[in-house]
Simulated assay, not measured.
Amino acid sequence: MLNKLKTTLIAGAVSTLALLPLGGVADQLTDILEKGTITIGVPENFPPFGSVGADFEHEGYDVDIAKLIAEDLGVELELKPITSKQRIPFLTSGTVDLVVSSMGANPERAKSVWFSSAYAPFFSGAFAAPGVTGGTIEDLELFKALPEGAELIRFGDNAATLSAYLAGQVDVLVTGNTVATGLVAENPDKALETKFIVRRSPASIGVKSGESNMQQWVNVFVLHKKLGGVLNELSVKWLGQELPDLPSL
Rank of each mutant, 00 (worst) to 15 (best):
I88R: 06
D62P: 10
G104V: 12
E59K: 08
L79R: 06
A126F: 04
A160E: 14
R87P: 12
F90Q: 01
G104Y: 15
E76G: 12
I153S: 04
V132L: 04
L140M: 10
E71L: 14
G53H: 03
K80T: 12
G134C: 14
S51L: 11
F127P: 14
K111S: 13
N158Q: 11
L91Q: 05
G94F: 05
A110E: 15
G134M: 07
F155N: 02
T133F: 07
F90R: 01
E148M: 01
R109K: 12
R154I: 11
V75W: 05
F127V: 14
I69R: 02
S124P: 00
E108V: 09
E71P: 13
D97L: 00
S117W: 07
T92D: 07
I88C: 04
V132F: 04
E148F: 03
L77W: 02
A118Y: 01
E138R: 14
K67S: 12
S102W: 01
P107F: 00
S93W: 11
A54T: 15
L79K: 07
G149A: 05
V52S: 00
S112Q: 12
P48C: 07
T83R: 15
A66V: 06
G156K: 12
I153D: 02
D55R: 09
T92P: 04
D55W: 05
E71N: 14
D64M: 15
L140D: 01
A145D: 12
I65H: 05
E57Q: 15
E59S: 11
P107D: 01
E57N: 14
A126P: 03
P48N: 06
L140K: 15
K67M: 03
K80W: 07
D139W: 01
L152I: 10
E57P: 00
K80G: 02
A110I: 06
P89W: 02
G131S: 15
R154G: 15
S51T: 15
S116M: 00
G149I: 04
A118M: 02
D64Q: 15
I69V: 15
D72I: 00
V99R: 01
A159E: 10
G131C: 02
S84K: 11
P107L: 01
I137T: 11
L140A: 06
F143Q: 06
G94R: 04
A159H: 09
